[in-house]
Write a protein that binds this DNA or RNA. Sequence first.
RNA 1: GCCGAGAUGGCGGAAUGGUAGACGCAUCGGGCUUAAAACCCGAAGAGGGGCUAAAAAUCCUCGUGUGAGUUCGAGUCUCACUCUCGGCACCA
Length: 951
Amino acid sequence: MAKRTFDHAAVEKKWQKRWAELQVYKTAENRVRPKKYVLDMFPYPSGEGLHVGHPKGYIATDIYSRYSRMKGHEVLHPMGWDAFGLPAENYAIKNKIHPRAAVDKNIANFKHQLAHIGFDYDWTREINTTDPAFYKWTQWIFLKLFEHGLAFQSNEPINWCPSCLTGLANEDLDGAVCERCGTPVEKKRLPQWVLKITDYADRLLKDLDTLDWPEHIKEAQRNWIGRSEGAEIDFPISFTREGTGKLAQITVFTTRPDTLFGATYLVLAPEHPWLVEALSRGDVFENTKEVAAYVAQAAAKTEIERSAEEKEKTGVELRGIRAMNPATNEAIPVFTADYVLGSYGTGAIMAVPAHDERDFLFAKKFELPIRYVIDPVTGEPQDNPKHKEKIVAVVEDGEGNVLTIKWPQELGGRLLVGGTIEEGEDPLTTALREIAEETGYTDIEPIERAEETVHHSYFAFSKNQATVAHTTLVHCRLRSDARQKQQLEENEAGKFEVEWVSVARARKEIHDDQHQRALSRFTGSASYSGDGLLARSGSFSGKKNRAALQEIVAMVGGRMVTRYKIRDWVFSRQRYWGEPIPIIHCATCGAVPVPYEDLPVTLPDVERYEPTGTGESPLAAISDWVNTTCPKCKGPAKRETNTMPQWAGSSWYYLRYMDPHNDEQLVSASNEKYWGPVDVYVGGDHAVRHLIYARFWHKFLYDISVVTSEEPFARLEFLGFILAEDGRKMSKRLGNVINPDDVVAQFGADAFRLYEMFMGPFSNTTAWSTASIAGSARFVERVWNAQDLVVDAPVPALLTPLAQTVKKVSEDIEAFKFNTAVSQLMIFINAIEEAGAIDKSSWSAFVRVLAPFAPHLCDELWSCAGEAGSVHTAPWPEYDSAALVESRVTVGVQVNGKRRGEVTLANDASEEEALAAVYANDSLNKLLSGRTLTRTIYVPGRILNIVAPGP
RNA sequence: GCCGAGAUGGCGGAAUGGUAGACGCAUCGGGCUUAAAACCCGAAGAGGGGCUAAAAAUCCUCGUGUGAGUUCGAGUCUCACUCUCGGCACCA
């Protein structure tokens, strides 16, 4: 039979034209059908154009939306452009054209590239964030935020990128460098517009639980919001030189108020307002100069410098003042140190070196007292335990080794020296005695005895006794290696070995957590951040630390508070290419919002749109735009010249697609009610920034009744990137970019689509493989040729495969498991070829389930089969669930859990029939002869396991 | 350091606790061809025994990052560990 070759270029052209003519993908508004809003994260139209990684998500939403349409949904599947922001502006500056022209050109290019792939977008709903008709509503939202007190002016220091010459939000940083250009950011005091996203922190966190999103994205958002519960506690301040009411106390934030009795000093961030105030008075401190110098030095450092100095703590004591620990009434010193951040909590901490690693390091360096107020509790809690007083001794040899005893595994493996304190014995004496008895060493010098006691619960199997050991940790040093010979010989003949091992090895090989604690207490980090029983804590001593936490706060008049890491959204950019912030500054009225009826405030043309670097936007130079009249008093006034960040438009664009041409409203109530929220949102990256900003704005719009759902994106599917064939990121610089235009020209749009979906799980990052795409092209050819096998008569062999295919493809599309859907379609074409024929109705069903993946091919096949209209508006096929299972099935046979053969049975065969078939099988029969069947496990259609001990 | 996700042939990957490696790529053998490409048919986890002129069928052992455990049966469940990727990180 002559093979026909699928002329993909001609077919693509034909159907793309026809779809447009017939308006196959026009979103209808009749609303009798259930809706499905399927959305891609809209692209930033860069000058580089699309590479093959970009369309992956678009193909997925295209398949999903085509499937939904065939399933009878009204589908909204739009596309648009996120075109404000630095990349477009920088591109324009570099190429010496206006950003507007650059954006228009890039959009045209993107659209042209997308058109080749055959997407079902309704282009009548296209949006563009730089279109004044669009950004009118971005400005409208800003005014609403302003009206509700959520947009305010601030003069706090912000992150400033000295290369991009603009202020940045916290979300725009990658660690402590500008996310765009990698330049370390500086702190700069600039008048800024800030959005109060922190007011929504709690809801942004809580409502994550309601979302059908990938766990890692929810987790990233939780990390970013960073909720922590703690307390604010006031520490009164006393002065040796001068004090005033304003400086009478310092409030700290701590998540561990339970350790208050162990707070031995306070630390203020160098930028703490109390400190600024005190310094301004000049004579509060005895060492004003020194303090001022430290503060100045900290202010000059970039974030990187401040944290890159790793671990090594710096700081200065504020001499001349003392704080009073409100729990102990002790006067304690106050420091300023840059390990405390001004922007978190209250900018001041109480330092508890015994129970906080950072405070410990600082206390060691400045020789401050360390007071242990929590006795660690370790081991498994026991019923009715017997109490014992014990010691655990860390013996060092001065060369980095510790003395250990290697017991048999069942007695705990490697341990330190330990033992029971005898009646009236001093723990140090016990330690020396036990060391001598167990290891033979006698010339041991005790160094330190830990102030705290470890309470360790365990079950002593040797004595069959539940036990709690109240253990004193002892630190000793080997003076000389003199040993009692006799003792040594006795023990080494016994059941354990005495060994000196390095601290690192001991840490690895000692598994008992009490002994671990002893080891780290004297050789590692001595601070203990775990839970236990309060000690040296007045009347709270002996209580569980967590249980007493609130009482301690109450006793000292503190407040339980919740704090968040997330910062308010710095919303001003000193750049040209963004939405003008619709505010007018009037000398008499202050910041006055532009009246709603005057929106949009359009971006004027400028001579130079390069950033000025002065902290002013290029707009400031256009005097006839800047100078205006105050809407309130009609006096002379100036426009705000900062623009909005790139993320403004994308924070609400998904709403505009629902009603893109509405001049009166951002979105009509009825359209929003019908289409919202987005059912499936697809994209990669942006785990925090875009998604948290959009959720914030959406919640605000919900609060002012513009939208009716609390969350914008009900379900999110994360897109895994496509790497270049060499496994690296695709980039122009590396010269490994693959252009979809070329792939489509060579293999066809349908093969391209199938390949991208078949590459692997949708959220996986996978390298492109030009060799592999040939497989998808072969599949397209085979489907094209299979139409020659269509016959009138039924083909029974295909009944089951067809039912399985319709079922699996439907379920897989809904679950975004496109790779296995494509695999099932391949299995079916294999079945057609094996059967050598396919009946008309099965063919029709197959063409329809393949249509979302290969829309051009399938519309051509559809019309070749004599069907009217487009396959994409045909109903999705049903399947016969009775046909899902083959009538005869192959069942694996296991003997004692190991696969030994298989038998073919009717799908509803009984266990007896199955066993009979096993005995009818020669080799299985032989294997089982002489054995007694003790048990059989039969899972019909799956497995028959025969438990039969050997002969 | 804390949190999250993951680890399966040469490669991408499949597998409601039930025949591991579906489907595809690459590979090898054969066909078609003057030849090559394309296309078609077939083989294939690793190792071994075995049969043989040489193979095949058949048989055994091992095999889903490592080690234990639960189970008639574990890629899948539990515990411990290693590594990879991602998020946060001096956040008190």
